[in-house]
């Protein structure tokens, strides 16, 4: 169990901001930390790791990590930290990178097998792909069997296929080790697949905290199929109108009646929604 109640003044791009969080995180939880850049997510991870000076208290399994301005040093906090850039020791083989943290050959072998890195254990980081490097970083972070695994957008530099593969591996590792994990992520599908809880930060405050399904499903009334987009064009055809809306990288067409079209302006941010019973689903 992590009990954290902290306050810190940050000097961000938009001026001075107060980061405040009062959270209880259960042992074994997989928490996604989400929110716009500059909202305090990475700072919160760094606070847990002991890399930032902060006011407040942090207690992990009844051990005080921060109390009355006394802070447990970084190396004594049992933390595994994985960053977006891999931060591997370039002069060590994959296996040595793991053993450097803790000389436990059996665990290293087990982790390398779980992540299909076994055959690469004698290679050096510069001969690995991005996905392989990040798997080494994750394995290395787990070598100490940390109490908390902190992941700062670990997969955001990877292509979608590799991302999905590593998500599965993170899931298997979490199932096997039950390490309490806090991951910064912006990707709703990643959050839904991995996390059992999402905490959303905005300007240093927690604005949402709940299950990924409850927080991420953008529903309005009973509409379950909902997207935000921008109205690009609207044309009258016969007695109806056809609107063209950009959603992410895609364009979609929507038929609207004249009364629905009446107040729409080109460039408007719009919400497209329909009931869950209507969309058809086909395999690509």
């Amino acid at each position: 169990m992590i009990k954290l109640n902290i306050n810190k003044t940050l000097h961000g791009a938009e001026g001075v901001m107060n980061l405040h969080a009062n959270l209880n995180i259960k042992k074994g939880e997989f928490v996604a930390l989400s929110g716009k850049s500059g909202s305090g997510k990475t700072t919160l991870l760094r606070i847990l790791a002991g890399l930032e000076e902060v006011k407040g208290s942090i207690k992990v399994d009844e051990q005080a990590w921060l109390e009355n301005d006394k802070s447990l040093p970084v190396q004594k906090r049992e933390i595994g930290f994985v960053f977006q850039d891999y931060a591997l020791f370039e002069n060590m083989t994959v296996e040595k990178n793991l053993l450097f943290v803790k000389n436990d050959k059996k665990l290293a072998q087990h982790l390398l097998e779980l992540t299909e890195l076994d055959s690469l254990k004698n290679r050096y980081p510069n001969s690995l792909s991005g996905g392989q490097k990040q798997r080494v970083s994750i394995c290395r972070a787990l070598m100490k069997k940390p109490k908390i695994l902190l992941l700062d957008e670990p997969l955001s530099a990877l292509d979608p296929t590799m991302r999905s593969k590593l998500q599965n591996e993170l899931l298997s590792l979490h199932k096997e080790f039950h390490t309490t994990t806090i991951m910064v992520s912006h990707d709703p599908s990643e959050i839904y697949r991995l996390a059992n809880r999402i905490i959303v930060l905005q300007n240093g405050k927690v604005i949402n905290d709940g299950s990924p399904k409850d927080v991420l499903l953008k529903t309005q009334g009973s509409q379950k199929f909902s997207f935000e987009g921008e109205l690009l064009d609207i044309k009258k055809i016969d007695v109806i109108y056809v609107a063209i809306v950009a959603i992410g990288q895609q364009l979609v067409e929507v038929v609207v009646s004249s009364s629905e079209a009446k107040n729409l302006l080109l460039g408007d941010k719009v919400n497209l929604s329909t009931k869950a019973f209507v969309p058809m689903i086909t395999q690509n």
């Binding site: 016969d238 007695v239 109806i240 009646s257 004249s258 009364s259």
Partner: peptide, 22 residues
């Protein structure tokens, strides 16, 4: 009734509500 070439839009009175059917 607004009758177009292919489609027609009809305004309906149901209780105090106005419905549109195409």
């Amino acid at each position: 009734i607004e009758s177009g070439e292919l489609l027609s839009a009809l305004k309906l009175q149901f209780e105090e509500f106005i419905l549109e059917s195409i």
